[in-house]
Design a protein around this nucleic acid. Structure first.
Lengths: 139, 139
DNA sequence: TCAGGCGTCACCCGAAAGTATGATTTTGCA
DNA sequence: TGCAAAATCATACTTTCGGGTGACGCCTGA
């Protein structure tokens, strides 16, 4: 961004200088004023386009900066632990695998899941994942 | 797009004409050539930026035009029916619900799913959904 | 015509998931 | 300090999933 502006400024300065110089020396006698103005317009249009592209591209590179919908999480009263379980479910892990990762029993995992289903108002894990993603509770 | 170009062209023509006119009439005597050139540069830079923004915005409005990865589907030899089942699974439906939607028995749905798991190299429906989405087999 | 893929269905069995209920411990906070 | 929410675990039971196997009809390409 800063670099783009700097380059643009320098180009502008150099071009103005050069044009001024050549205008006095040669062109003004050979080229009509219309052509001279047209050239300047053309050059600076190009520079404008280029600078514009640079500046907008900068903001286009990073498109998906996932931001968790914390409001929804709080509103649905989903706890930390439940969210952890939810994330693992979304990654396709079984209850057993989740239990091992979280160092708890399968029963505990199932309890968390039951609570989640209730809060999300769903019946199955796949629905929970679907809903959680649409609500941006998880990525 | 066409409209933008047209507007730009017209603006350019009008501005050149006006500048020429005023140059001859008044300004050339009051303003230095440097200032004149600077003004033209400024105006056309602005126009360039504006046109550039218009042109790039056009291509930025439609960002997520989901295109199914048909190559992957063919490569994995996933059939039509299997894909239908997969989509419904991804929407969180149970085997029974899917069977009802497709007017087949639960057994048939299960058979399709078994084949899918094999082809996707997964063990559970949640994993299948996860993988299918990452491969863009489904939305 | 015949093999092979696809779609359909069935039956069985075990594993995984989900429901219901209750209990204990931890912990944050009023 | 004491209460409520959260986290943990258990037991028992039902439902859903998933694997394995086999079967039948249809269609297509070799």
């Amino acid at each position: 961004m800063k670099k783009t502006i700097l380059i643009y400024g320098l180009s502008l300065a150099v071009l103005v200088f050069l044009l001024e110089y050549f205008e006095y020396r040669y062109f003004v006698h050979e080229l009509s004023t219309e052509v001279f103005v047209f050239l300047i317009a053309l050059i600076f249009t190009g520079l404008g386009l280029w600078a514009g592209k640079k500046l907008t591209n900068q903001t286009k590179i990073e498109p998906p900066p996932f931001e968790q919908n914390e409001k929804a999480i709080r509103y649905l009263k989903i706890s930390e632990r439940e969210l952890e379980v939810l994330e693992l479910v979304a990654q396709g892990f079984s209850n057993k695998q989740i239990s091992d990762k979280l160092f708890v029993s399968v029963n505990t995992t199932k309890t968390h899941l039951s609570h989640l289903y209730e809060k999300l108002d769903v019946k199955r894990r796949t629905q929970a994942v679907e809903k959680a993603k649409s609500l941006k509770l998880i990525e």
